[in-house]
Every structure is written in C-alpha cells, then in structure tokens.
C-alpha cells in the first residue's frame, strides 16, 4: 500500500503543471466567492451564525480533496487498463491496497490546497479561524470519514470500469452533483422537493453539515455531529462492502475472459 502511495505521489508530481493549475483554479473560485460575499448574503435566516465567506470557505477548501478522492481509484484503474499495467498490478497487490494507496497519494497532494487556501484567505481576505483541540480532533475525524466515503464510491465505479473497460464519465457527473447540491456554496435549506432528496443522498452533505457545525457554531451541537458521523460511517460500510463484492466479480470476469488489459 505504501509502495503504491509513494509511486503515485511521484507520478502525480511529474504532472506538476496539472496539479498547480488545479490549485490555482481552486484559489480563483475562492476569490470569486469572496467578492460575491460582499453582496452580504444573510446567513442568519438559514440558522448559520457566520458570514457567507466563512460558510463557503469550508466547502471550497474541501472541494479539491473530495474531487480527488472521488476520482482517484476509478481514474487510476482506467489508466492502468489503457496503458496495460493493470494485469501486472493485479499480480503484486490486492484491490484494497491499491485503492487505499492511490487515494492516500492523491489526497496527500490535494490536502495542500486546504493550507494554501487558508493562507491566501488569511493574507488577502481577512479570514481567520480559531479552533480548540476538541474541534481539531472532530475536524480530523470528519475529514477522514468524508475521504473514505468518497473513496468507496470511486471503488464502486471502478468495478464497472474493470468489467466494461470503459470510463463512463459518471464520476465526473457525481462530482458536479456534489459540488452543487451538498451545500458547498449555498445552504441546503434553500432546496425543496427532489433536490433535497438528491442532497441527502450525497455523503458530503452530511460531512459539511457536521463540519459547519463544529467550526462555525459557538456551541457544538453534538447530536448533529454524532448523527452525521454515523450516517457517513454507515455509508462507508455499505458502499465499501458492495464495491468489494462487485470489484471481485469484475476481476474474476475479466480474468476468465482474458481481457484484464484493454488490448
């Protein structure tokens, strides 16, 4: 697992321009919403005791990492299949090692975006954050749950990629849905009808709701943190088990039909 993580970090660093541009775009998005926040959206009516920029900053800083953990396993496997290295990897590693290793590498690099966003917002946008030790512990725990929940979704999509040897683009679609409906740039209290159902089907909605509560509320509402943490944990277990079953079946199928790699 560590070997895969180290190899993936090295590989990602060889695409420095791509990585730096994603970081840059994340900052551009944060800047855009900083100026939008100058229109003074009233967050109190949604029960949020913070300014709009404080609210939106948390989701935007997380966006890059969520996107990375959502795309990594599926995208990496697709690239391995196309470049013909997937069969060789299957000989040396099991799927769990591969999935965790690639996600660790991706999110390790993407996590720099959080610190860079914090630094830029502190230096230029007057954004400051003071958190206690308990809050830091809760943030780390929720962060881990958010990462894992998106990793298992990527593993689920990987099962289909291995089986059909095609990248359907559905991960990208799910990422768009997550960016829009999980409460990154507006509170989900604005939604009604089907969009609410959609929002409540996305794991980031629960993670962000808990994170907003931990970071922005004067008093942490433990009930919300506990409930949302459990929802994320349940999500990880259910989707994780399902994805392992489907991936095993897909690998067996591709071995049986002698089409592990693309050609």
């Amino acid at each position: 697992m560590y070997a895969i993580a180290a190899a993936r970090v090295k590989m990602s660093l060889s695409y420095k321009s791509s990585y730096l541009i994603t970081l840059f775009l994340n900052l551009v998005t944060i800047t855009m919403y900083f100026f939008f926040s100058k229109l003074n959206p009233d967050m109190a009516i949604f029960g949020i005791s913070a300014s709009y920029f404080e609210f939106v900053f948390i989701g935007l800083a997380l966006q890059f990492i969520v996107g990375t953990s959502l795309a990594t396993v599926n995208g990496s496997i697709y690239n391995e299949i196309v470049s013909g290295t997937w069969s060789s990897l299957l000989l040396h590693f099991n799927f769990a090692e591969y999935a965790i290793g690639t996600t660790l590498a991706g999110t390790f690099l993407a996590s720099f975006s959080i610190f860079i966003s914090l630094g830029v917002s502190y230096a230029f946008f007057g954004f400051s954050l003071s958190v206690s030790v308990i809050q830091i512990a809760l943030i780390c725990l929720l962060f881990l749950l958010i990462l894992l929940s998106h990793m298992v979704i990527s593993m689920l999509f990987a099962a289909f990629t291995i089986y059909y040897q095609k990248n359907s683009g559905l991960v990208q679609l799910l990422y768009q849905l997550t960016k829009t409906f999980s409460g990154i740039v507006f509170p989900i209290a604005l939604l009604s009808g089907f969009p609410t159902v959609l929002a409540r089907s996305l794991p980031l909605t629960y993670g962000l709701e808990a994170l907003h509560n931990v970071i922005l509320s004067e008093n942490i509402q433990w009930e919300i943190v506990q409930r949302n943490g459990l929802v994320l944990l349940g999500f990880i277990i259910c989707i994780g088990v399902l994805s392992f079953i489907l991936v095993s079946k897909s690998i067996k199928h591709s071995k049986k039909h002698n089409k592990v790699d693309w050609y």
Binding site: F36, L39, N40, P41, D42, Y52, Q172, L173, Q176, L177, K179, T180, F181, V185, F186, L190, L191, P195
Partner: peptide
C-alpha cells in the same frame, strides 16, 4: 444536458442568496 442543468442549478440557488 445534465452537467449544464447542474451548473445552472448552482447559479440559480446562489442567486437566491442575494439580499
């Protein structure tokens, strides 16, 4: 179609936040 609709939804809900 779906991607455009999702992006439009984002702009729609964000615009509702303006005082």
């Amino acid at each position: 179609f779906v991607n455009t609709f999702i992006a439009a939804s984002l702009f729609y809900y964000v615009s509702l936040l303006v005082p």
